[in-house]
């Protein structure tokens, strides 16, 4: 199922991009953590009251965020910034699996090698998972360094948990990109469509579901339903089941992509 030569080549060809993104994300996380305002509760309450509810739903509530450093991390980093960075990275990497091979006309030679199409997808998705894990580490280190500098408590387990949620959410975005690229073998388009779809699903999960109760029974179809960094950061009540669900989204997308791709004509 996994081909080591393919995995190694995918890692090799994307090290530079991933290193740059990881370093930048690490610095950004450090910088954002250092901005913690550390307000007294009542002042934070005033700020919170001045934010419209939809903004609080979307970005998080400053009531806790401005007074508790872990809630600040959620507000500033893990609610949106974190998955947005790694989600876009994952989409770009995943667009390299099918869309770029077809755009660059390298697919014919690759598929004339004795490797099943589904093994190509599985191997390169595995490589993406490895790259995402490595890319997330500097961001978590940036948060930890920021926490240390601001005198906050470093909860390693919590950071690992939110990092893992971010990785699996981004991984599911990668497999969504892959699935789209089976039909739209264009790098920019497939990545942009997948990221836009995830942006929409984020909006549905954080705002729309609260406004339209009819959506609630279908909420579990949305990966963001299982992306709850606030549970780990604020309530210290991380749910490992969320990780499994997020991974299942990624795996399902990949399996569907592989099934469809296996029977399609390769465009040249």
């Amino acid at each position: 199922m996994f081909n080591t030569a393919l995995i190694r080549m995918f890692l090799l060809r994307h090290t530079k991009l991933v290193a740059i993104v990881a370093a930048a994300a690490g610095l950004l996380c450090l910088f954002l953590t250092l901005l913690f305002p550390n307000m007294p509760d009542d002042e934070a309450g005033v700020v919170s009251a001045s934010w419209p509810p939809i903004v609080r739903d979307l970005f998080g509530d400053p009531l806790l965020g401005f007074s508790d450093i872990h809630a600040w991390l959620h507000l500033q980093i893990f609610n949106i910034t974190f998955w947005a960075i790694y989600g876009v990275l994952a989409a770009i990497l995943a667009a390299g699996i099918i869309a770029r091979e077809i755009e660059c006309k390298t697919m014919d030679i690759l598929l004339s090698c004795p490797i099943r199409r589904r093994d190509v997808l599985a191997s390169e998705l595995a490589a993406i998972l490895i790259l995402l894990v490595l890319a997330v580490l500097p961001a978590l280190a940036g948060c930890a360094a920021g926490l240390a500098a601001m005198g906050g408590e470093i909860r390693l387990g919590t950071l690992v948990m939110v990092g893992a949620e971010g990785v699996f959410l981004s991984f599911s975005l990668a497999s969504a990109t892959l699935l789209i690229s089976v039909f739209v073998p264009n790098q920019v388009l497939s990545a942009a469509l997948a990221v836009a779809a995830y942006g929409l699903m984020f909006f549905v999960d954080s705002v729309l579901v609260r406004l339209v109760s009819a959506l609630e029974p279908c909420a579990f179809l949305n990966p963001f339903h299982f992306y709850n960094p606030e549970a780990a950061l604020i309530r210290q009540a991380a749910r490992p089941g969320d990780l499994i669900a997020l991974f299942a989204f990624g795996a399902t997308g990949a399996v569907v992509a592989a099934l469809v791709f296996a029977r399609r004509d390769i465009r040249c």
Binding site: K105, T106, I109, S112, P114, I115, R116
Partner: peptide, 21 residues
């Protein structure tokens, strides 16, 4: 089919190569 491909070579008419290698 995959095991057959071990014994087959192929040069496409219009192809690209990994430029970064």
């Amino acid at each position: 089919f995959q095991s057959l491909l071990r014994d087959i070579g192929y040069l496409p008419g219009d192809f690209g190569l990994y430029g970064d290698l």
